[in-house]
Simulated assay, not measured.
Amino acid sequence: MILQYHDPMCGRFDQSQTARFYANVFGWADAVYDSESTPAYNVPPGTYRPLMHIQDGEHRIDDVFWSYRAKWAEGKLPISINARLDKLSNRYWSRLLKNGRAIVPADGWYEWTGEKGKKQPWHIHRKDRAPLFMLALANFGASTENRAEAGFVIVTDDAAEGMLDIHDRRPVVLDAASAALWLDPAISPEQALELARHAALPPDAFEWFKVRPEMNRSTTDRAQMALPMPE
C-alpha cells in the first residue's frame, strides 16, 4: 500500500520504553495487553504501535496502525497521521472523537528545520523527561480494504512561543490525570474537546535539542537518536 500523508507535522516519535512501563507510570496496573511492539527510538507512520484506550470498561493497550483514512474516503481524501484539534468536531473526525479516544505514550517527538536536503532533526520532550501522553483518535474496528481504515492519528494544535522556532504545530500532550479523563467514555465529545484545549501542557513544559541527521532515515533506530547531537 502506498501511503499519501496529509499534515506531516509530528511525523516521528520516540517510544523507547515498553508498553508496560508507560502503563505503570499511568497507573494502569490492571491493563490488558494485546501488544507485541518493542521499544523504538524512531517511530515512523505506517507502523503498529501500542495505544492506550478503554474498551468495554477495560484498560487496554493494543498495537494500532499509525495512519488513518475512513473507508468511505478512499480515493477522496489522503491518509492522515495527524488530526487538527480545531477540526475534531467535523463530520470526518466526530465519530472517532466520541468512540475512539486514545493516548499515545512516548518519550518525545521529532520535528525538522531547514531547507530540503539539509533538514535538521530535533528531539522534543518534557523538561522533567517524564513520559508524554499524546492525544490520539483511532478506529479500533477491522480493516477491509487497507490497514489505514483501522488506524490512529495524533491530535495536534497550534504551537506557541519558542516552539514556533521548530514547527507551527505540536501534539496535544496532557499529564496523566488529564489524559485519563480524555479516555473516560463517560465524558462527552464536547467535554473532551474542552479538556484538550485547556489542559494541554504549555510550551514551557518542553525543551528540545538537535539530534543526528541520520535520524532522517526512518529505518534508523538506535539509542543515539534520542541524544543531543555532538557539537
Rank of each mutant, 00 (worst) to 15 (best):
M1H: 11
L3G: 12
L3Q: 12
Q4A: 10
D7H: 08
P8I: 08
R12N: 12
R12W: 13
D14N: 15
T18E: 03
R20D: 06
F21W: 13
Y22A: 06
V25F: 11
F26A: 10
G27H: 02
W28A: 13
V32L: 14
D34N: 09
S35D: 05
P39D: 00
A40W: 00
Y41M: 03
Y41I: 06
P44V: 07
P44L: 03
G46E: 00
T47W: 03
R49K: 11
R49Y: 09
L51R: 03
I54L: 15
Q55Y: 05
G57S: 09
H59R: 15
H59Q: 15
D63T: 05
D63F: 04
F65P: 03
F65H: 10
W66N: 12
R69D: 11
A70W: 10
A70F: 09
K71H: 10
G75V: 10
L77P: 04
I81A: 03
K87L: 13
L88N: 01
L88D: 01
S89I: 04
R91E: 14
W93M: 06
S94W: 07
L96H: 10
L97E: 06
L97R: 09
G100W: 08
A102I: 08
A102L: 06
P105W: 01
P105D: 04
A106W: 01
W109R: 00
W109G: 02
Y110R: 00
Y110Q: 00
G114P: 09
K118I: 00
K118D: 13
Q120Y: 06
P121W: 08
W122V: 08
H123C: 10
R126D: 01
R129H: 11
R129G: 01
A130L: 09
A130W: 02
P131N: 08
P131H: 04
L137R: 03
A138E: 05
A138M: 12
A138H: 02
N139C: 11
G141P: 01
A142K: 13
A142I: 09
S143D: 13
E145K: 12
N146G: 10
R147A: 12
G151P: 02
I154C: 08
D157C: 14
A160Y: 04
A160R: 11
L164T: 11
D165S: 09
H167R: 14
H167C: 14
R169Y: 11
R169K: 14
V172S: 06
V173N: 00
V173T: 02
V173Q: 01
A176P: 00
D184A: 08
P185K: 07
P185Y: 02
A186Q: 14
I187M: 15
I187Q: 13
E190N: 13
A192N: 07
L193R: 03
A196T: 13
A196L: 15
H198Y: 05
F209E: 04
V211P: 10
R212F: 03
M215R: 10
R222A: 15
Q224P: 00
Q224W: 08
Q224H: 06
M225R: 04
A226M: 10
A226N: 11
P228Y: 01
P228A: 05
M229Y: 14
M229E: 15
M229P: 04
P230V: 09
E231C: 06
E231S: 11
